[in-house]
Design a protein around this nucleic acid. Sequence first.
DNA 1: AGAATTTGACCACT
DNA 2: AGTGGTCAAATTCT
Length: 304
Amino acid sequence: MEPADFSHAGIPAETRRKITAELLSGRQSAARLQSLLQSAAAADHDPIALATKILTSFNESISILESAAAELSCPDHSLCPDLDSGDSRGSTAVKNHQGRANKRRRLMNTRVVMTATTEDKYGWRKYGQKVILNATYPRSYFRCTHKYDQGCRATKHVQRMEGMDSEIMYKITYICDHTCSTASQIIASAVASASDSYNLISFSNSHNGQLIEGTGHSFFCPNNDDAMKVRETTTTSGSTNHEVDLWSELKDFGSLQTTTMTNQYYFSTGDDDADSLMFWNGCLPIIFVLAFGQIAAYYTIESK
DNA sequence: AGAATTTGACCACT
DNA sequence: AGTGGTCAAATTCT
């Protein structure tokens, strides 16, 4: 990646303050890590957590610097990818090659923002970006890098959420499971390293395991250890009442620990075409979209 | 040179 | 006709 140009004079005082704070925090954490690694007290602390904190500080600093540089280079945001890229339909853009080349150059310089916030263990290739109606930020489209060599059909859509001033959040929708060889390796790795942070599948005590009413459909969540199936009850038209073998579907997601059945488990109603349910991956929600008793897609919210 | 991204164009759906 | 999803040529990065 080409480094951002930080030679501009006039970076706002507030930005400088943030950068300084982050760098100081990073330096402090680095110093602590150094002493930890040198002392026998390392067992009482978590060097990995410290290293993560250091990385976060430096990443944050770099991000702030790049944002500031981008702000100075295109103060009206007319060339920023989040606000002015994507769908060309109906546009009357003049194909000025010089101007287009300059625009591309600036777009490339800001690429890090998206890639840095959408990393997971799979290889993704961006194949499109669209401006979405009533959305401030465009939606980016990614496919598995093994789409052609292994026929993996997994895709994901990434969209920055609105109204997250203090923390940039991205809604990431996953469509189709990975079938590439990478997938089985990742699943095996995740299962092997299962920890409390993957205490995911559990059933509600806040709702007392009772029927959770919705506008159209409701899900019943039996509050017992035998809760291997989810019962879907249609409460409006008709009297369909069929079990959805959701659990077998969920087991396919290797990062889920299937043995813990306590704490929170929320269902939410969906729209006319698909129901959805939500549970928590640590502090982050994961929402599954169900269609015809199958998981059609799932999405999660990731913070920057 | 090959990989990756950007973006105008196209397509399907409503 | 409007919209979201995908394709593919052009461009940029490594």
